[in-house]
Amino acid sequence: MEFGPYLMLAMLEGAVLAAVLALMASGLSLTFGVMRVVNVAHGEFYMLGAVIAWFVAHLVGGGAALSFVAAAIIAPLAVGVLAAAADITILKRIDYDPERTIVATIGLLYVIQQVTLMTYGPDARPVEPPFNSRIALPWIEWGEGGPSLYFPWGLSTTSYKLFVIGAAAVLILAIRLFMTRSRAGLIMRATQLDSDMATAFGIPVERVYAAVFGLGAALAALAGVLIVPIQQAHYLMGGDALLLSFIVVIIGGLGSMAGTIVAAVLIGMSDGIISVFFSPTLAKIIATLLVALVLVFRPQGLFGTRDR
């Protein structure tokens, strides 16, 4: 394959990663924005989404499409309820102290991961996509008679991958509308701005926190359901995903939703492209060092504004 089509292929793969990452990172960003806590167990909620999708696919009959829809409903609900329960039983008790929350969610990470290992096992297992037709992509070539379209061998994507990109975009738009237009979103934003004042106005802040924590986890689970037909479900898949979402949320500016989306596209695309042309390990080294330096020298993120 020539360079042009090759680059386009890398960008398509990057776009799929960016879409899933944007969804997952918005969950992390939402939790941080409203509650001011970092949820280290976020990657495990993503993993749970993928693993639940596998279980659903094997328990619900009636074909890949039906079980996919079932998984897309059941997995976020189950994970959201689990996270809200963890919030009430653990985080509420330690008063959302930022440092202790990190230690507790590290504990939660190991508990979820290891219980999955005990029940689901150490194997990586695939889930069949609901639809998966191969789509060949055209490339423009300048020949003697002007530009012409042709289909280079190997330049193709699947309908499912395009669906993932579209679905993530729709979901992110829906969250945006939910936060800006709905009453629940208004309450969440009020809590984010000033939780004491919100309490004074009769907002049940603790219930808002539980809901936000659950919603953030549900978004991660949904990202897990979307990715599992492309990647296999494995009990350790949360680690890399968590690291990437951290990178995205920090580069985008902690708690800023718009910045998170921009950073997800940036990181996802560049990770896809760099990994194709260079060593993936080198790409990760550069990304992690970059994040550390961004936090040191520009703690508000590349796109964020300073705290009031």
Binding site: I90, R93, I94, R100, V103, A104, I106, G107, L108, L109, Y110, V111, I112, Q113, Q114, V115, L117, M118, P122
Partner: peptide, 21 residues
């Protein structure tokens, strides 16, 4: 007892932050 021995570490971390900081 089990392959998932890090479960103990996780439970210990949560328990310690909650009950015995």
């Amino acid at each position: 007892l089990t392959e998932a021995y890090m479960l103990i570490a996780g439970l210990a971390l949560i328990g310690l932050t909650l009950f015995a900081p």
